[in-house]
């Protein structure tokens, strides 16, 4: 069983939001729901100011707080590391939403907190999910963490990487390339 991960090079993101809308269409999401988003940061003083953009989506944590708190195991960790939702079992208590330190959950019309599912059918077929395949700047790279020859591992070996909110013990599976 593959172990999937996602490597994000945020420095290349120019904030076009194609990832968000490509995902919404691929997954046929309701209007109010988006699985991924961008966070904007301004640093410095004019004229030496810069903007940073960080793409965010479900981190598919190895210690997912959303799955820990879910009373019915509606949210669960698959063998391949993907944190998945069985919508049949969801009681709509929104505990997962309050538990997620990444604000990754979005409530749908049926009052089920949805989230990015990492499109396993694409990963299994060796393809990039819509958010990645449409990205003109190749910000995202999904791949197998347990395959030493995978592109993601090669790229991770070339760069220093960091993760978000590691202090909460979530062990996220999204890695961000560190830039000076």
């Amino acid at each position: 069983m593959a172990r999937y991960g996602l490597l994000i090079d945020a420095s290349k993101c120019t904030g076009c939001h194609a990832c968000s809308i490509a995902c919404s269409m691929y997954n046929e999401l309701e209007e109010e729901v988006t699985y991924n988003r961008l966070e904007f940061i301004e640093r410095g003083k004019y004229p030496n100011a810069v903007m940073e953009i960080v793409p965010l989506q479900c981190m598919h944590c190895d210690n997912p707080p959303c799955a820990t708190v879910c009373p019915t195991n509606a949210t669960f960790k698959r063998e391949d590391g993907i944190v998945s939702i069985d919508e049949n079992k969801c009681i709509g208590c929104k505990y997962c939403m309050t538990a997620c330190p990444y604000d990754a959950r979005q409530l749908n019309e049926s009052r089920i907190p949805e989230k990015c599912r990492w499109c396993p059918e694409m990963l299994e077929a060796g393809k990039q999910p819509a958010c990645s395949s449409t990205c003109m700047n190749e910000v995202r790279l999904f791949g197998k963490l347990d395959d030493p020859d995978s592109e993601i591992n090669k790229k991770m070996a070339q760069h220093e990487v960091s993760q978000l909110v590691t202090e909460k013990g979530t062990k996220p599976r999204i890695y961000y390339i560190k830039r000076k």
């Binding site: 194609a18 269409m25 395949s133 449409t134």
Partner: peptide, 13 residues
């Protein structure tokens, strides 16, 4: 080359 911006997706929808 296989990639599209947000407009391309939104316009289609």
């Amino acid at each position: 080359k296989g990639r599209l911006c947000a407009r391309g997706h939104g316009m289609a929808a």
